[in-house]
Amino acid sequence: METASLSGLARLISNRCPPPSSENARDFSKKMVSKTEEEQVNRLEIQVENGGGGAWEYLCLVRKLKLRRSDRVLKFGLSILNDPKKRSNLGPEEWTLYEEVAVAAMDCQCLDVAKDCTKILQNKFPGSNRVGRLEAMLLEAKGSWEEAEKAYLSLLEENPLDQVIHKRKTAMAKAQGNIPQAVECLNKYLEIFMADHDAWRELAEIYMSLQMYKQAAFCYEELILAQPTVPLYHLAYADVLYTLGGLENLQIAKKYYSSAVELTGGKNTRALFGICLCSFAIGQLTKGRNKEDKENSELQSLSALALEKEYKQRNPSKNALLTATLKSLKLSS
């Protein structure tokens, strides 16, 4: 029963509004960049695209916000690097740009460009840890895992507390499809750097993919502790608890869905559906003995109403689907 309604839910949500440009939408939702910053980046991007200048500002902003827009970074970065006058205007920032472009090139599989950038940096800073890291990443991008692993290990020997290298090792294990090793790597990393919430988030997502929901729940608790006002974590935690099932978990899940609703001002469709589904599941489990149902049913019907209103406003064509779903949850009015 649960799986059926869940997949219906997934279809509903994914059909509702096609994401404007899936890649951008993803990197914003993942990195949590504020709305104004997002607008600024997009404006700059269009400006540079149309030859309005400001490429360097755009690159700085992308680096600052840690966005992943490798194709454009590569394009704009190269346009600066290939112009000797523009390049010399940067002064010492030139080397930072080389690094940024090298990483972007690896991401785009332009290995020649990445190789050239790394070589230039290697000549400028021989024996540098940071360039060594770049070289290892280049090996990684080529797919020669063993050599990359060796390079990372030798870098770690010099500086055993290099966070980036630990993270790279995890990413490498994940890229090879060796998920258990990635988990092990991340756990080892988190043993020391236990306040790094990005790592906790990654671990939570890996556990989710492995269907180890209890472990994932722990990670999401850790994330909620680190940033209690981010609704995404409340939502994800509720999802995990709902998936785990059981009366107690469902009740807790419902509470976290409501907190997500409260934190987003009722704008989060998934949280609204979550409340409906939780209430329904709780109702199923406590069928014979409904004592406390009365007070909770209000929240449930309210969220159903909110959903109906939102669908009517934003996507009337899917209204029938919603009504059917709500009817199956015995919520339709």
């Binding site: 807790i252 509470k255 907190s259 609703v261 001002g265 929240l299 909110a306």
Partner: peptide, 17 residues
């Protein structure tokens, strides 16, 4: 703190609806 959030969510939704 979460039990309180159910009521608060209710209030938010009521305003929204």
């Amino acid at each position: 703190a979460l039990p309180k959030f159910e009521q608060r969510a209710e209030a938010v939704l009521r305003k929204l609806v």
